[in-house]
Amino acid sequence: MLHHHHSATCQHHDEQSARELAASMLTRAREAGLRRTKALENVLSILVHSHQPLSLADIAESPDLTSGADKATVYRVLVKLEELALIRRLGLHDRSAYYTLLIPGRHDDYLICTQCGRIQRLDIACPVEALEKQIEHESGFKKLYHELEFYGLCPKCAD
C-alpha cells in the first residue's frame, strides 16, 4: 500500500528504483533492436514514473518529454514498444489508447468504463494467477502471462 506521506529516504528509494527500471527497460528495448534515441529514453522514463496508464497526448504533452519529439514520433515509439511487448495498450478501440509498462514478473489488471473511457487499476489480488499456474502445469506451456481487463460503467457514468 502506498502512503501519501513519503519520508525523504523512501522518496530517494522510489526514485532510485524508477531510474533502475527505466535503465532496464531501455536495455530491453536496445536488445530487441531499437535505436537508443532521446525520444525513446523520454517515453520510457515518463511511463516508468507514471503510476497510471497514459494516453499518447499525456506523453506527448509531458514536460518530461525533453527531446522535443512531436506527437507522431512519440506514437511511432509507442507502437514499436508495443510490438516488442515492452508496453501494453489499454482501452476501447474507438477511444484513445492508454499505455502502460509490461514488467516481467509483475502485472496489473484494469477496469475500463465503456462510456467515458476511464481506466482504473484493479486493486485486488489477481483472480487469474492460480488458474495461470494450473494451465502451465497441465499444458506444459512455460512463461505464461495474461492481460485482464473488465469493462463496464464507472460509478459516475452509472448514475
Rank of each mutant, 00 (worst) to 15 (best):
L2C: 07
H3D: 09
H4V: 11
H4D: 13
H6M: 09
H6C: 08
S7V: 09
A8E: 08
A8N: 14
T9Y: 15
C10G: 12
H12C: 06
H12A: 15
H12I: 10
D14M: 14
E15H: 07
E15A: 10
S17P: 02
A18F: 05
R19G: 04
R19I: 06
L21Q: 00
L21P: 01
A22T: 13
A22M: 13
A23R: 08
M25R: 02
M25T: 04
T27G: 02
T27K: 12
A29E: 03
R30N: 14
E31S: 15
A32W: 04
G33H: 14
G33T: 13
L34F: 14
L34K: 05
E41Q: 09
N42E: 08
V43D: 00
V43I: 02
V43Y: 00
I46D: 00
L47I: 06
L47N: 00
V48R: 00
V48L: 02
V48Q: 01
H49W: 03
H51D: 10
H51V: 05
Q52W: 05
P53V: 07
L54R: 01
L54P: 03
S55G: 02
L56P: 01
D58E: 15
D58M: 03
A60T: 03
A60E: 00
A60I: 01
E61G: 05
P63M: 04
D64H: 08
L65D: 03
L65H: 04
T66Q: 07
T66D: 02
T66C: 04
S67W: 07
D70L: 14
K71Q: 07
A72W: 05
A72P: 04
Y75M: 10
V77A: 05
V79K: 08
K80C: 12
E83G: 09
L84T: 04
R89S: 05
L90D: 03
G91S: 04
G91M: 02
S96F: 03
A97D: 10
A97W: 14
A97V: 15
L101T: 06
L101A: 06
L102E: 06
G105S: 01
H107A: 08
D109P: 03
L111F: 02
I112Y: 03
C113E: 05
Q115D: 09
G117V: 12
G117H: 12
R118K: 15
Q120I: 11
D123H: 11
I124G: 08
C126P: 07
A130H: 15
K133L: 09
K133P: 00
K133D: 11
I135E: 00
E136Q: 15
H137T: 13
E138H: 15
F141Q: 10
K142W: 07
K142Y: 00
K143A: 04
K143D: 09
K143P: 02
L144T: 10
Y145T: 13
H146S: 03
H146C: 07
E147C: 11
L148R: 07
E149Y: 15
Y151A: 06
L153V: 14
A158K: 12
D159R: 11
